[in-house]
């Protein structure tokens, strides 16, 4: 009796899990493995590391990897620094406005990346709203500034896409902070600033970490914003896009996507470690 029950439990498990597992194994894992494998196979069909040695010794391509990571890191740091005070207001100060704040955070997530870049282009065009304010209305400048195709605007647009994720993950950790710890510090005579920097902030470091990795991962793979807003960046996703579109050197594109994949896997690993620590 118990044996048949056990078997049926095992079949049940298999039936429930198998469709999703098989689907992702075939249509998610295999394409990625196949793609990486192609970067290790030379023209003559034998195994080769030539593309990676060429890639990793070429100063241009090393620069591209560095630029990808530095750009994502910059976007991440800016997003987290901006997100923290907003998350703090949302959790601690907003009261009856918290519903409105959550709505305003989620609404931009419903807009397409095309809509946002279109908005940036209109706002920051040579005769756009921002230049009109600066030159005509406020008289701060004599001539309109060139914003489009500057690195600053591209970074601002990336932050705009990613900062809600940072706010939401920091807010969820702030919510879990035991406020008695802060009260304890205050009662014992610590100033509000000291309480924040020595109690609240350290308690939310894990949340900042999770949010930061999330933002970093998405930033690392984004290219639509950079294609449309320019900024002169040369990142891995942009180069893959260009290889696919114009140069059509697919082996090189496979090499670059494998490198991008390795960075993503490293982030995923870090994220899992952080989450596990939070759980413990």
């Amino acid at each position: 009796m118990s044996k048949t029950a056990q078997i049926s439990e095992r079949t049940r498990r298999a039936l429930l899990l198998a469709p999703a597992l098989i689907f992702l194994a075939v249509f998610f894992v295999m394409p990625l493995v196949d793609n990486s494998a192609r970067s290790f196979i030379g023209e003559d069909g034998s195994f080769t590391l030539a593309r990676y040695t060429a890639f990793l010794t070429d100063s241009f391509y090393l620069g591209v990897i560095l630029e990808t990571v530095v750009l994502s890191a910059a976007v991440t740091v800016i997003s987290v620094v901006i997100a923290y005070p907003v998350a703090y207001v949302l959790v601690r100060k907003a009261g009856r406005f918290s519903g409105l704040i959550i709505f305003l955070l989620i609404a931009p997530l419903l807009t397409s990346i095309i809509m946002r870049t279109f908005g940036w282009q209109v706002l920051f065009a040579r005769r756009g709203l921002i230049n009109q304010w600066l030159v005509t209305d406020l008289g701060l400048l004599d001539t309109p500034l060139r914003w489009l195709n500057t690195p600053g605007l591209a970074i601002a647009a990336l932050v705009h896409v990613l900062v809600p994720f940072a706010v939401l993950s920091i807010a969820s950790v702030l919510q879990g902070v035991d406020r008695r710890l802060e009260e304890g510090a205050l009662v014992l005579g610590a100033s509000r600033f000291r309480t924040f920097f020595e109690v609240t902030l350290p308690l939310t470091l894990d949340g900042i970490g999770t949010g930061a990795i999330l933002v970093f991962m998405i930033a690392n793979g984004s290219f639509v914003t950079l294609v449309l807003l320019g900024g002169g960046f040369q990142t891995l996703p942009l180069l893959i896009y260009q290889q696919f579109n114009t140069t059509r050197d697919f082996a090189l594109a496979s090499t670059m996507s494998t490198i991008l994949l390795v960075i993503a896997l490293a982030c995923l690993w870090l994220q899992l470690r952080l989450v596990r620590r939070q759980g413990a």
């Binding site: 249509f27 394409p31 991008l260």
Partner: peptide, 17 residues
């Protein structure tokens, strides 16, 4: 995990596969 992988890599790899 598909959420954490760069979309451009998923797209490019899937096209060939």
């Amino acid at each position: 995990s598909p959420l954490s992988m760069p979309m451009i890599v998923i797209g490019f790899a899937s096209l060939f596969f």
